[in-house]
Simulated assay, not measured.
Amino acid sequence: MTTQIETPVKLGDTVRHARKALGLTQPQLALAAGVGVRFIVDLEAGKPTVRLEHVLRVLQALGGTLAVIGLNDSQAGAQE
């Protein structure tokens, strides 16, 4: 399934929905992702300053990934 995320609040809602669909509590997800419970609370609340590294861990723990769509690949490769 693909979900279009355009705001921190939408990301938080998506993470919360996925967590609940898997029957996980916030502490269980935090443990599985290797982050603190406070981070999960902030992420699900739509806090705009969460650490990307931790977001990626949470998404992986939920069985998801992050994809960027619509960028010109030749420009993205030039930045490496």
Rank of each mutant, 00 (worst) to 15 (best):
residue 27 P to Q: 03
residue 51 R to M: 11
residue 77 G to R: 01
residue 61 A to D: 04
residue 53 E to C: 08
residue 76 A to P: 08
residue 36 G to V: 00
residue 29 L to M: 13
residue 68 V to Y: 03
residue 68 V to E: 01
residue 4 Q to Y: 08
residue 66 L to D: 03
residue 31 L to S: 15
residue 68 V to C: 03
residue 15 V to G: 10
residue 73 D to I: 14
residue 78 A to E: 00
residue 69 I to T: 08
residue 15 V to C: 11
residue 62 L to T: 08
residue 39 F to C: 06
residue 36 G to H: 01
residue 16 R to H: 10
residue 70 G to H: 00
residue 30 A to P: 10
residue 80 E to L: 02
residue 80 E to G: 04
residue 76 A to Y: 11
residue 8 P to F: 07
residue 43 L to K: 05
residue 78 A to M: 00
residue 39 F to Q: 05
residue 80 E to D: 04
residue 4 Q to M: 06
residue 43 L to S: 11
residue 23 G to P: 10
residue 6 E to N: 00
residue 19 R to G: 06
residue 73 D to N: 14
residue 65 T to P: 14
residue 50 V to I: 13
residue 75 Q to K: 07
residue 44 E to T: 02
residue 54 H to V: 06
residue 5 I to Q: 00
residue 35 V to Y: 15
residue 62 L to M: 14
residue 54 H to P: 10
residue 19 R to D: 06
residue 17 H to K: 14
residue 43 L to D: 05
residue 72 N to Q: 08
residue 64 G to K: 11
residue 3 T to K: 10
residue 15 V to R: 08
residue 64 G to Q: 11
residue 10 K to N: 06
residue 28 Q to H: 13
residue 44 E to V: 10
residue 4 Q to K: 13
residue 10 K to V: 14
residue 77 G to Y: 03
residue 37 V to P: 12
residue 64 G to R: 12
residue 6 E to L: 01
residue 10 K to H: 11
residue 80 E to H: 07
residue 57 R to P: 06
residue 33 A to L: 15
residue 41 V to N: 04
residue 9 V to M: 08
residue 17 H to Q: 12
residue 6 E to C: 00
residue 34 G to E: 15
residue 66 L to P: 08
residue 52 L to I: 14
residue 79 Q to H: 05
residue 21 A to M: 13
residue 47 K to M: 01
residue 18 A to H: 14
residue 1 M to K: 12
residue 39 F to W: 05
residue 74 S to T: 03
residue 55 V to T: 14
residue 58 V to F: 08
residue 5 I to N: 01
